[in-house]
Simulated scan of single mutants.
Amino acid sequence: MRVDFTKMHGLGNDFVILDGRKEALPVLDTVTAAAIADRRKGIGCDQLILLENCDQGDADFRMRIFNSDGGEVEACGNAARAVALLHGVSAKVLTDGAVISLEPTDGGATVDMGEPRFDWQSIPLDYAMDTASMPVSWGPLCNPIAVNVGNPHVIFFVGDTDAIDLGNIGLEIEHDPLFPERVNVNVATVQSKERIKLNVWERGAGLTRACGTGACATAVGAMRRGLVERKVMVELPGGALQIKWTDDNRILMSGPATESFRGSFEWSDYADGE
């Protein structure tokens, strides 16, 4: 079966998007997703995005998200902006994390990512603790804040984010038994009341140039600690995102998305895992 795809990115965080809304696609499993995402033998991407029809009344369609290791995850803010740009009009989209709202803008989108969750069971953590200042540490990183914004994040605030070897310590934290569903690791420096600098180790993908949910989680974490205002710019290696935490407890993320190219492939070339 020949399948069309669209390659897109949000601030360098790149996606292969498969649209199964008009014609149903074969079952996408972990092996196939990882093979398509492979940068040497496949098309190559940080996440593989599958769009499907759904029968949930308040959603226009469903978005499924597979990391480059083939694992399916709950949310991806950068992918949501890319899908908004591809879809072309406002929509409500079902993800495994929540129903989110997309609003395409000139060259990007604003996404209502829903409400953050702070209770330890929602992260989830392996045992109860205060998620606003967790009494744990890994090397130079200590006392993080944890938040679920559709997927789990832990955020460390440091004096200089670039001084932290996140490529080395990120994997250790991601797989720590404290996080039974693993975790995304964010290391941030508050530069002013309106700006945060951020590096992210993404669960199942590693170091990334941009992470939309990481920007949301970090901004809300900084707001919860009173470090920044309720509307900030979060600067990632790939560029900046604007994050607003509204008075009615919604997270609004705004930023660019770009279509790179379109193509097609034979499903069997990747379904075999070769």
Rank of each mutant, 00 (worst) to 15 (best):
F5G: 01
F5L: 06
F15D: 02
L18K: 02
G20W: 02
L25F: 07
V27H: 14
D29V: 05
T30Q: 13
V31H: 13
A34T: 04
I36K: 00
D38T: 06
K41Y: 15
G42Y: 04
G42T: 05
G44N: 06
N53D: 13
C54P: 01
D55R: 13
G57E: 14
A59P: 00
F66Q: 00
N67T: 11
N67G: 07
S68H: 04
S68L: 04
S68Y: 02
C76H: 04
A84D: 03
A84E: 02
L85Y: 02
T95F: 03
E103H: 14
D106E: 15
T110M: 14
T110K: 12
W120Q: 08
I123L: 10
P124W: 08
A128C: 13
A132E: 11
A132C: 13
L141M: 12
N143P: 06
A146D: 05
N148R: 10
V149G: 02
G150E: 04
V158L: 08
V158F: 06
D162I: 07
G167S: 11
N168F: 12
I169H: 07
L171M: 15
E174P: 02
L178V: 11
F179H: 05
F179L: 07
S192H: 09
E194V: 08
R195N: 10
R195D: 05
I196T: 02
R203P: 01
T208Y: 05
R209Q: 15
L236S: 03
D247M: 09
N249F: 12
I251W: 00
G255K: 03
G255T: 05
P256W: 03
A257W: 00
F261A: 14
R262G: 09
R262V: 13
F265W: 10
E266V: 11
Y270G: 01
Y270C: 01
E274T: 14
